[in-house]
Amino acid sequence: MSNFTITEEREKIKESSTFIKNFLDTTRIEHPDLEYPTILIICGSGLGGIASRISSDTFSIAQAYAEIPYFKTSTVPGHVGRFLFGKMNGTSVVLMEGRLHSYEGYAIQDTVFPLRVLHELGTIKTVIIKNAAGGLNRDFKACDLMCINDHINLPGLAGLHPLKGPNFEEYGPRFLPLSDAYDLELRKLLFKKMNDLNLPRTLHEGIYAFVSGPTFESRAESRMLHIMGADAVGMSTVPEVIVARHCGWKVLALSLITNVSVLDSTPKVTDHNPAAMDEGVASHTEVLENGKIASKDVERLIEAVVGDI
């Protein structure tokens, strides 16, 4: 690790997990319906509304990241920054309402620290990861969905990798295979539930490119990613997928296409079309607005999937 030894990191993980266990155990004295979670759901920008799917018939409890030892706080609009424990469709879950990103100034190991801590609970076997992404595939449009079946980890290939440094042997191997990162049976279940619910939007399947951010991609970068085979691009998810697999969890990941990336070349002075410079310019406001438009369908879909895991 960059600023600490693996022994120190293990001690931090243990202290944080003990804090959460004590929090849950104390709460369960008065609210026995509260159970240790078996599924982790990570919410992306504008997708925290899934919290409304926590059953009102059972007790749920929130724990802010800022109150947990060694946790960083989320600084991005649309990310609440807390755990929410409860039941969804009869299954005990924990929601991460807001994630951490390296572009916020955190070490990439800090962005996946919550997964390491939750793994110490000993009950989580599956993670469902949601994100907002830019569409690179020309068949995609805003508010479509994409089930991730593979990824391109550009920061990781360049050395910014969540498993860089001493390996946590008690979690997983030094050299982790990722050819099976996105569970096939969970992907089949997602498509089945999409058909069962007859939701009014398209669910694609494709490859997600992870970039560091925080800038949205240039036209040339978008074309490069498209040529490399990516169908969508975003600034999260892949570090979490890697650590989840290192923990032995099954992974299901879903992108909400909140904007369509511009693949056309930058207009030249000789084109005499200055308005073309403004076409397709991305913004975080657009991401959040389109997240709201499709969020109810995403919530119903995830709730249905959770019920059958």
Rank of each mutant, 00 (worst) to 15 (best):
S2P: 00
S2M: 06
N3V: 12
F4N: 06
T7N: 10
T7S: 10
E8C: 05
E11S: 14
K12I: 03
K12N: 04
I13P: 01
E15T: 14
S17K: 10
T18K: 12
K21D: 07
F23Q: 07
T26R: 13
T26W: 07
T26N: 14
R28S: 08
R28Q: 12
P32A: 08
E35P: 02
Y36S: 02
Y36D: 01
P37V: 04
T38V: 11
T38S: 15
I39H: 02
I41T: 06
C43A: 06
G44V: 00
G44Q: 01
S45T: 08
G49S: 05
A51F: 02
A51L: 07
S52H: 07
R53A: 14
S55F: 11
S60Q: 15
Q63C: 15
Q63V: 14
I68S: 01
I68R: 01
P69E: 12
F71H: 05
T73S: 15
T73D: 15
T73W: 09
T75C: 07
P77S: 05
H79S: 13
H79W: 11
V80W: 00
V80M: 06
R82N: 13
M88C: 11
M88W: 04
N89S: 13
L95E: 02
G98K: 11
L100A: 02
Y103R: 08
E104M: 14
G105S: 09
G105E: 10
I108Q: 03
Q109L: 12
P114K: 03
V117K: 10
L118H: 03
H119M: 00
E120N: 01
E120P: 01
L121T: 07
L121C: 09
G122Y: 05
I124A: 02
I124H: 00
N131D: 04
A132G: 07
A133T: 12
G135W: 04
L136F: 11
L136N: 05
N137R: 14
A142M: 09
D144W: 09
D144V: 06
L145P: 06
C147Y: 11
N149K: 05
H151Q: 04
H151T: 02
H151V: 03
I152C: 08
I152L: 15
P155T: 03
A158H: 06
P162V: 02
P162Q: 05
G165L: 06
N167K: 04
F168M: 13
Y171M: 12
P173L: 09
P173M: 07
F175E: 00
P177G: 10
P177F: 11
A181M: 08
A181N: 07
A181I: 06
D183K: 04
D183V: 03
D183E: 09
L184N: 09
L186R: 01
K188E: 08
L189F: 12
N195D: 11
D196F: 03
L197C: 08
L197E: 09
T202Q: 09
L203H: 06
H204M: 10
E205I: 05
G206Q: 07
G213Q: 11
P214L: 10
E217C: 11
A220F: 13
E221L: 13
R223I: 05
D231G: 07
D231R: 11
I242W: 02
V243Q: 01
A244V: 00
H246R: 06
C247T: 00
L254A: 04
V262K: 08
D264I: 01
P267S: 08
N273D: 10
P274R: 12
D278G: 15
S283D: 11
E286K: 14
L288S: 06
V298G: 00
R300N: 15
L301T: 08
E303N: 12
A304E: 13
D308S: 15
